[in-house]
């Protein structure tokens, strides 16, 4: 490994698929979800900035960052909140490098564990620490609710990823083992094999429910139930700090959808050999995943906390465990 490779990775972390690309995809994902939700609820959604309001999330982000004042609550530790916001963004960018979408993608045996570490642990920890750095009873209540939800949905998310990883490693004997890159390469084969179809279907259901809950989207918007706890974890956030938190949340949405697109829908399949068609196929599948998430969001009211947790156990952890058991038997 030479210095040029390291420089290439760092440049990739800032450009594609890193910070700049992640920012654009995140803001676009937010617009897509907001616009579709609004149309489902017979509202206009964003319309003012850009064609069909597509630049509205960008404008909101820039306004919060550049125009609004930073939080200055006297009991809060703003520096700690900012530090964890930057760590959260760093962890999200590191996660994108594990996805096989750029020439500088990193893959190794067991890189699924690295994805769990960077995308599952650091992002969730960052969001909780940002929230509790500025004390407020509503914040604390929201953060403890969020911690309760992620204690179930984060394991469920990665449990559902274990199924295609196990199947590619043990059934298809693909290399590298337990790697997200191998999963992406061989996911279409798993759907075409009648034996592996059932666990794949169960894991897809599991990951969709887990994604909905880890992103605090309805019906799992329990931590930020505005009639009960104002804005939950974000009650005390404003200005640039709120912009960073929103960015982490939107990037979480974008990367989760991208993981489902790549690991379950095969990414560029069936046009792997044609880069342009492959990229177009991946984008269409990505929008399809976002649309499914949005339809679920627009179709449900908010659950109570115990209802939400039971739903995660029933429709995410249980299908995931059954899928894994079937995969182990195969």
């Amino acid at each position: 490994m030479d210095i040029m490779y390291i420089l290439g990775v760092l440049a990739s972390a800032l450009t594609y698929p890193g910070l700049a690309t992640l920012w654009i995809i995140s803001m676009f994902s937010e617009w897509w979800v907001r616009k579709l939700t609004a149309r489902a609820q017979r509202r206009m959604g964003p319309t003012y900035v850009g064609p069909l309001g597509v630049l509205q999330p960008f404008a909101d982000f820039i306004k919060l960052l550049v125009v609004k004042s930073e939080s200055s609550q006297r009991y809060g530790n703003i520096s700690l909140a900012k530090a964890f916001a930057f760590v959260g963004i760093g962890a999200l960018v590191a996660s994108t490098l594990l996805l096989p979408i750029s020439p500088y993608s990193i893959y190794s045996r067991y890189d699924l564990i690295l994805l769990i570490y960077f995308f599952g642990v650091w992002v969730a920890v960052s969001e909780v620490v940002i929230a509790i750095s500025i004390p407020n009873p509503f914040t604390l209540k929201g953060a403890s609710r969020y911690a309760s939800v992620i204690a179930l949905c984060e394991p469920a998310f990665f449990l559902s990823l274990l199924i295609p990883a196990y199947l590619t490693a043990k059934v298809l004997k693909a290399e590298p083992t337990w790697s997200i890159t191998a999963v992406v390469s061989y996911a279409p084969q798993l759907w075409l094999n009648p034996l592996t179809l059932i666990p794949m279907l169960l894991s897809l259901i599991s990951i969709l429910v887990a994604t909905q809950s880890k992103l605090m989207l309805p019906p799992f918007n329990i931590p930020e139930a505005e009639q009960e706890v104002i804005a939950g974890p974000t009650t005390e956030l404003s200005g640039p700090l709120l912009a960073l938190f929103n960015f982490i949340h939107d990037a979480d949405l974008a990367i989760s959808s991208l993981i489902i697109t790549l690991a379950f829908l095969g990414g560029p399949y069936p046009f792997e050999s044609n880069p342009a068609l492959g990229a177009l196929t991946t984008i269409v599948k990505f929008l399809l995943v976002l649309t499914v998430i949005t339809v679920i969001r627009a179709s449900f009211g908010r659950f109570r906390l115990e209802q939400g947790l039971k739903t995660i156990v029933k429709y995410s952890i249980t299908p995931g465990l059954i899928g894994l058991a079937i995969a182990l038997i195969i």
């Binding site: 490994m1 760093g90 590191a94 490098l97 993608s105 890189d111 570490y117």
Partner: peptide, 17 residues
Amino acid sequence: MFLDPLTATLILSGVLA
């Protein structure tokens, strides 16, 4: 690029920082 798990962890931690 295919790396061993330890090198991948170090590089990604560096990317995070």
